[in-house]
Design a protein around this nucleic acid. Structure first.
Lengths: 167, 167
DNA sequence: CCCTTTTCACCTAGGTGGTAAGAT
DNA sequence: ATCTTACCACCTAGGTGAAAAGGG
């Protein structure tokens, strides 16, 4: 699996500081299409046909879960342990995506209800946040040289590919 | 600061799986002595006089604290983030020890009492475990070549100093 | 003389895009 | 032709004892 870059990060407000919460992410298809190579001149992807069959859809729990609201709110929460793969047989618990398909990351907050019959309240103890600006197309090889350059310029682990510029 | 090696590790039983606990360690002097170089021929340390004044005595919380009993019990708990220093002015939160003095590591379990007046019960919510076999003399340079060889042989980070033997 | 500090080569552990070979 | 896989050099980040230099 590979990490996402940039990493999905959130700043959280309004939790009960003393209550426990689970934080998690999943990914849902944006449409029912499969794409072909990115056309640089028109700044758009070509449609290749209908989407491949979707996998069951895994979920990634933030590894600090569960934790108190106070803990989650006191600094930016970063999902940098989340990894993506296109391997349908993956057994590392990574998020499985189809390459050349578009996805919408989703962020979920689950209140850990201390009541014994907490399952009954599952619906109200659950809140989902979607940031459309985080949509992306999954790929095995970059289709756009400017994306490559952006990542080389900003991901510290790709420093070896930088031509110049310390900043 | 430097890590301890070997790392202090515990396997825990008998917690309430649903309750929160804090795990922590501290270090207490074993005696009131300062030592001089280790005498290899007699397999013992020479006494150099009275101990230097002790520092206030810091505490190291296991970074996963607080966590549920179930979490702590499901695998060995390893204090591999704990670091020792002889710098009295240390501001990294490391454990401050006097070099050439003997110490006894202590392991503490604190039950996080959900009651409002939990301070009242501090005494009973607290349990300390001492393993005498973990006593050691703090040093800035190894005094015994066999200790050096033992660490080179067993610490993966010292692999560069091994002469031979994969195992 | 005995101990401490600083720096260093050499590791572990793991995240990058490039590249060549493989698959369809 | 287009996409995928496997491997690689090159990074980040940080844990080793050796060795040289420093201090009392």
């Amino acid at each position: 699996g590979r990490r996402m870059f940039p990493t999905f990060q959130v700043k959280i407000f309004g939790m009960d500081p003393m209550a426990d919460y689970m934080l998690l992410m999943d990914f849902v298809p944006v449409d029912d299409k499969r794409y072909r190579q990115y056309a640089f001149h028109s700044s758009s992807w070509l449609v290749a046909g209908k989407a491949d069959p979707a996998t069951p859809g895994r979920v990634h729990y933030h590894p600090d879960s569960p934790a108190k609201g106070a803990q989650w709110m006191k600094q930016i929460v970063s999902f940098d342990k989340l990894k993506l793969t296109n391997n349908l047989l993956d057994d590392n618990g990574h998020i499985i995506l189809n390459s050349m398909h578009r996805y919408q990351p989703r962020f979920h907050v689950v209140y850990v209800d201390p009541r014994k019959d907490s399952e009954k309240y599952a619906e109200e103890n659950f809140k989902t946040f979607v940031f459309e600006e985080t949509r992306f197309t999954a790929v095995t090889a970059y289709q756009n040289h400017r994306i490559t350059q952006l990542k080389i310029a900003s991901n510290p682990f790709a420093k070896g590919f930088r031509d110049c510029d310390p900043e």
